[in-house]
């Protein structure tokens, strides 16, 4: 199956500064793909190249079979976009705004259905200037969905959402994926990635430093952590050979006739893996 989005060796400089240094990844139909990375890693630059807003300097990009640098209006009808900073007409109500954008598409989703998806029923007839920051962001998400796109680009879509709204947004994105739609999502919330993303790529200083499913990322980390308490103090052992180390530890404890209090063996969390990928000194 041809990928919905493919990105190969993409480079982009702003003046002297190289923001992207050969980014690689692919999105398969129907998946939710998470693009992670610290501030300034190049997530927005990448996503805006895919949306057709920015020009790349080098490399190959295909989005829905087309190079976004010269894509037309038909192509735009098939994508939905949430930009990193919200933008809505201040003087239109939620319903009017969605109806205005719905009018740009051949087969839009019904406005009231979208209002339900973003949970703004009570603000249906409120002007955007009277919405809270998170509600405005939800309206922004609604504008991206109203055209019923097959591919959705979300640049930090749930920033400012309360926990309930975030869960509802996750539900919405999952339901899109169940309908076969593809989502590219950037976020700084690792729980969002764990909940939503089928696969992720971690960007750091303009390069993909890791990619795969969340399980692969976590499972691929070489070290395992073994913790126990001895004389009231927590002992942490990090090892790449957990079987041997654990055997020696427990054997020694049995010989001494001790119990290893609070014994725990675990793989690092996604957060720990993420931090080690993005903070360790580059080789």
């Amino acid at each position: 199956m041809t990928p919905v989005v493919s990105v190969h060796g993409v480079t982009k400089s702003y003046g002297e500064f190289e923001a992207l240094k050969g980014v690689e990844f692919e999105l398969r139909a129907g998946e939710v793909f998470g693009l992670l990375g610290p501030n300034g890693a190049g997530k927005t630059t990448t996503i805006e190249i895919l949306e057709g807003y920015r020009r790349r300097d080098g490399g190959e990009v295909q989005v829905l079979g087309v190079d976004p640098a010269d894509a037309g209006l038909d192509w735009r009808a098939r994508i939905g976009v949430v930009l990193q900073s919200s933008a809505v007409y201040e003087n239109l109500t939620v319903a009017e705004q969605l109806a205005q954008f719905a009018g740009y598409y051949e087969r839009p989703r019904p406005v009231d259905e979208v209002i339900g998806l973003i949970g703004l029923e009570e603000k249906r007839d409120a002007r955007a200037r009277r919405l809270s920051g998170g509600q405005r962001r939800r309206l922004d998400l609604g504008l991206a969905l109203v055209g019923d796109p097959e591919l959705i680009f979300l640049d930090e879509p749930t920033t400012g959402f309360d926990p309930g709204a975030r869960r509802r947004a996750w539900e919405t994105i999952r339901s899109l994926s169940a309908l076969g739609k593809t989502t590219l999502l950037t976020t700084h919330y690792l729980d969002e990635v764990e909940q939503l993303a089928d696969r992720v790529a971690v960007l750091r200083e303009g390069r993909v430093v890791a990619s795969g499913t969340v399980q692969e990322l976590v499972g691929g980390a070489p070290t395992t952590e073994i913790r126990y308490r001895r004389n009231g103090e927590v002992v942490v052992v990090e090892t790449e050979e957990p079987t041997r180390v654990l055997h020696e530890l427990t054997a020694a404890a049995i010989r001494r006739g001790e119990e290893l209090d609070g014994l725990e063996v675990r793989k690092p969390s996604l957060e720990e893996v993420y931090l080690s990928l993005t903070q360790a000194e580059p080789e």
Binding site: E51, Y53, L73, D74, R76, A77, I79, V81, L83, S85, S86, A87, V88, Y89, E90, F101, Y104, Y105, L143, G147
Partner: peptide, 14 residues
């Protein structure tokens, strides 16, 4: 500057 024009550009409106 509020970004609304940029957003409109992402739609199929010519």
């Amino acid at each position: 500057e509020s970004g609304i024009l940029k957003r409109v550009r992402a739609t199929p409106l010519p």
